[in-house]
Design a protein around this nucleic acid. Structure first.
Length: 796
DNA sequence: AGCACGCCGACT
DNA sequence: GTCGGCGTGCTC
């Protein structure tokens, strides 16, 4: 007997078997999309094995339908999906849902609809008011089972007034196209009206897609005219699968000649491409060192061999710049997969890649799932960026899956960064990744001079005894830059005006009543705001403990720095750039645009100002307080800080205008800062890897996190002990280290208490094996939610 | 996810 | 006594 193994696109563990109806025998392959009955409804599934041994003791239901001619998922994509499900401890069906564009995984929903008898009953007086109410609302639109009362529904079904109906939502993925074709008219009637005449003229050369006609004729009149022509027998509308027309881009190459380093890097990548080797490279170079040009040329080579590319970029507006360069080089061969793209458009682009109409996918981490045909190269730009790790649902790391996907596909992988992650450096050390350096700065730009200022000493010098926001040297440098009509970036990793507000009587800080964090004073909003739940309180609110109304603010955020810059250099045009500013759409582009065209002198902001932008006019970068990132409760704090410092330093200066970086800190001797100051990333790597080794932290070991969350602290503690007991039983015999349970760094968010356990394992396999064993042995934990995070990037 | 089943408190 | 709340278990 033949049975197919199917993965249903629901968050359900496991695969299910279905009998194959005769008409589909021999017509199913791995990756085919099918409609199957599942738990009383119809859901979309994917064939994992077309001929499998069904388990004994279950009666199989048949596959209802094969939804597409060709398999929607290639075997290499199926393999990555299966791997990700296994590695990140997620149900396969859920991974599929994440990997696919929305709408492809439709399931049926049973809805109650009003029957004709029900409509008639509405006109009679024979129904009670609650029933009438329901019938009236059903007359407008159907409702799902859960939306209405069980008992009333049953009564009405019995009387035949309403009925349950099942429908499967839109399932068209295959991109069909409607063509209008001119026919020989049965009799020579004159064509009526200018619109019809225009259409006939356009079609006289040959059939055209209706969407192409719409470019010349307004849609409203087009539709009407076409149907008139159709009913006259002059035009026929036919539906065809969108042809796999290769539309060539304008791959004319760049006029630029490559630097020697670029040529060498490209040669290494190209030679791996030509030999179809499974090679991985780290392309090491700062912004402006010409990484993008190497990417573009490497892709050209791959395309010349008829293969495709995936380019992963961090989750910021940086995509726009990169997209422009890719477009001018490759035209509409490039498909951008952004979360901002609508569902329909995303399906279309996904389909373009799948059919080979386009073969370069560009996007954030989710682009790793792009169905690029015959994959030849996978590029991860700014590979150290934490945004490649997803923070919900499937907690995957796009960079890691990219490496794996390239390997499986026999493609070349290129990781690009000026400040590679320790993970990647480790891969270089173990010869699994080849490092290619672009050390020389384009145009021979010199490295900036970095100065570290001790805030403790600066405070002693102040007459007021307070910590200056802008120390003397920074303020002086700022004024100098402004007077020279150059530009400056001032960085502080905290939003708001004051980050802490303390009661002047009892010294109690104002905290969020729903989260274990201090409230931040946002002057622009005129309120204290919780950065975790968004709650706002008026600034003048009596102290929760002593009812005093005297408040004293401490701790500066970007809003406060903005004012300080204004005071220090009153003639400077200053703009702020942080999440509060960019929450308005288009604001980011607006601010960056103004900074680029030099109508703004100083940019004050958070992380955002550090990411990969290249502004030639910037000669000064000021870091208000390096300690905010050094003090971050995370084992990667030093790495993050070093990367941050190096990235911002990379923003400063150019050939004719040497740059300057001023770092203010309470820890001037911290190695993350001294190494950044000496541009000594080799020493930083050695020191940091040594400290990770001592603590057995990644990348020396593999880390897994089990986080528990509950609104009930008692239940949370009990559950944490229970999980810890099981984790110990699993971890000890396998030689894993277990830490915790301890409260999470933020112990409560939105009234949910949080605890965590940490597992440290020598290899990925032992880690995932142990995590799965723990998960499988866990009993029901009631109202406690569990999160399993493999390879977490932070502990929050 | 969605649906059934079953057990509980709380109302016409 | 019914109604609707939610915890639990299952879907080839």
């Amino acid at each position: 007997l033949h049975a197919a193994e199917v993965i249903v696109t629901l968050p359900v563990e496991g695969r299910f078997h279905y009998s194959i109806p005769d008409r589909l025998l021999g017509r199913l392959a791995v990756g085919h999309r099918v409609l199957v009955p599942f738990g009383g409804r119809k859901v979309t599934g994917f064939v994992a094995a077309p001929d499998a041994e069904p388990p004994s003791g279950v009666s199989l239901k048949p596959i209802l339908e094969r939804l597409d001619e060709e398999p929607l998922l290639t075997p290499d994509l199926m393999a990555i999906v299966a791997f990700a499900a296994d590695y990140y401890l997620a149900p396969v069906g859920e991974v599929l849902r994440i990997a696919l564009p929305p709408g492809v995984t439709a399931a049926s929903v049973a809805k109650y609809l009003i029957t004709p008898a029900g409509k008639a009953a509405l006109d009679s007086f024979d129904i009670e008011s609650s029933e009438r109410e329901l019938l009236e609302s059903l007359a407008k639109r159907g409702k799902r089972r859960a939306e209405i009362s069980r008992s009333i529904a049953e009564r009405l079904v019995e009387r035949g007034l309403i009925a349950l109906s099942e429908s499967v939502a839109a399932k068209a993925v295959e991109d069909r196209i409607q063509l209008a074709e001119l026919l020989e008219p049965p009799e020579k009637k004159p064509i009526r009206g200018p619109v019809q005449r225009k259409i006939a003229e356009l079609l006289s050369v040959g059939p055209l897609p209706i969407e192409a006609l719409a470019e010349d004729i307004p849609r409203a009149s087009l539709k009407r005219a076409l149907s008139a022509l159709e009913s006259d027998g002059r035009v026929r509308i036919v539906e065809r699968l969108r042809e796999q027309v290769e539309r060539e881009g304008v791959d004319r190459g760049s006029a630029l000649t490559l630097t020697q380093e670029q040529s060498a890097a490209l040669a290494a990548i190209d030679s791996a491409t030509d030999r179809k080797e499974r090679a991985a490279f780290l392309l090491r170079g700062v912004t402006g060192s010409g990484k993008t040009e190497v990417y573009l040329r490497a892709i050209s080579r791959v395309r010349a061999l008829g293969r495709g590319a995936i380019v992963l970029v961090p989750e910021i507006a940086l995509t726009a710049q990169l997209e422009a360069r890719f477009r001018t080089r490759f035209g509409d061969q490039v498909v951008v997969l952004h979360s901002a793209v609508g569902d329909k458009e995303r399906r279309k682009r996904w389909q373009q890649l799948r059919t080979g109409q386009a073969n370069i996918a560009l996007g954030p981490r989710s682009a790793v799932w792009a169905p690029v045909r015959n994959l030849g190269i996978v590029i991860v730009d700014e590979e150290h960026d934490p945004s490649f790790k997803q923070h919900s649902d499937l907690r995957y790391n796009g960079r890691d899956l990219a490496l794996l996907r390239a390997h499986r596909a026999g493609a070349v992988a290129v990781l690009g960064s000026a400040t590679p992650s320790l993970e990647t450096r480790q891969l270089v050390e173990s010869n699994r990744v080849v490092e290619l350096r672009l050390a020389e700065r384009v145009g021979g730009r010199p490295l900036p001079e970095i100065t570290v200022i001790d805030l403790a000493k600066a405070r002693e010098k102040e007459r007021s005894g307070e910590i200056p926001l802008l120390t003397r040297p920074l303020a002086d440098a700022l004024r100098l830059v402004v007077s020279r009509k150059e530009q400056a970036i001032i960085f502080l990793n905290r939003r708001g005006f004051n980050t802490i507000v303390v009661c002047d009587e009892c010294q109690d800080p104002r905290r969020c009543s729903h989260c274990d964090v201090s409230l931040t004073h946002h002057k622009a909003e005129g309120a204290l705001i919780c950065h975790y739940c968004g709650r706002r309180e008026p600034f003048l609110h009596p102290c929760a403990k002593c009812k005093s109304r005297a408040m004293k603010p401490y701790g500066a955020g970007t809003e406060r720095v903005f004012e300080a810059v204004h005071e220090a250099a009153p003639e400077a045009r200053v703009l702020r750039l942080d999440r509060d500013v960019t929450s308005k759409t288009g604001a980011l582009e607006e601010v960056l645009g103004q900074f680029r065209d030099r109508s703004v002198d100083v940019l004050v902001g958070t992380q955002m100002v550090t990411k990969g932008f290249d502004f030639p006019g910037v000669t000064l970068v000021g870091i208000i307080c390096a300690d905010t990132s050094l003090a971050f409760p995370d084992f990667r704090a030093a790495e993050r800080t070093f990367q941050l410092m190096t990235q911002v330093a990379g923003r400063a200066g150019r050939a004719d205008l040497p740059g300057r970086v001023i770092i203010q800190t309470f820890q001037p001797d911290h190695y993350a800062l001294t190494c950044a100051l000496g541009h000594d990333d080799e020493r930083f790597f050695q020191m940091e890897i040594e400290s990770r080794r001592r603590a057995s932290y990644p990348p020396i070991a593999r880390m897994g996190l089990i986080r528990l969350e509950s609104s009930d602290l008692g239940k949370l503690d009990a559950a944490a002990r229970e999980v810890a007991k099981i984790a110990r039983e699993v971890a000890d015999p396998r030689g894993l280290r277990l830490r915790g349970p301890v409260p999470a760094p933020i112990a409560r968010i939105k009234d949910r208490h949080r605890k965590m356990l940490m597992l440290l394992a020598p290899t990925p396999a032992t880690l995932v094996g142990a995590m799965r064993a723990i998960k499988d042995r866990l009993p029901r934990l009631g109202k406690v939610e569990l999160v399993f995070d493999v390879d977490p990037l932070d502990l929050l």
